[in-house]
């Protein structure tokens, strides 16, 4: 099952086996505006659930990106570093941020499903 889950920090996470692909949601990009800079975690580093795992900057401000689960960074999407505007264009698909080899699948249970997230996003933006 490849259900996509969502965090309160507006990240999405898709699990395939023990590899999780993580990015930021369309809603997050709409809050940020035009993204002009991206910083990703180091490949091979271990990052902990809810820890900072990068930065996105719009013309207006910088925001941290958090990881919704713990794991080892096994892959990075260099294309969003080279052209950060790709994140605004396709945030929940080709503009993923990084992939983690996760340690504890139960961390996924703490996250929201699509309906829950949509409701959360709607409420938090009003």
């Amino acid at each position: 099952m490849n259900e996509v889950k969502y965090s309160k920090e507006h990240e999405w996470i898709k699990l395939e086996g023990d590899i999780a692909t993580i990015g930021i949601t369309r809603h997050a990009t709409e809050l940020l505006g035009d993204i002009v800079f991206t910083e990703l975690p180091d490949k091979g580093s271990n990052i902990e659930k809810d820890g900072t795992a990068g930065v996105v900057e719009s013309t207006k401000a910088a925001s941290d990106v958090y990881t919704p689960v713990s794991g080892e960074v096994v892959d990075l999407n260099q294309s969003i570093v080279d052209d950060p505007s790709k994140i605004n264009q396709d945030p929940e698909n080709s503009a993923w941020f990084f992939k983690l080899k996760i340690k504890d699948k139960s961390e996924m249970d703490t996250l929201m499903n699509k309906d829950e997230y949509d409701k959360f996003a709607k409420e938090s933006s009003t």
């Binding site: 505006g33 035009d34 002009v36 719009s58 013309t59 207006k60 505007s85 605004n88």
Partner: peptide, 10 residues
């Protein structure tokens, strides 16, 4: 207004 629908870069 800080921006309109097309965004700051556009």
């Amino acid at each position: 207004p800080i921006q309109y629908s097309e965004g700051i870069v556009e």
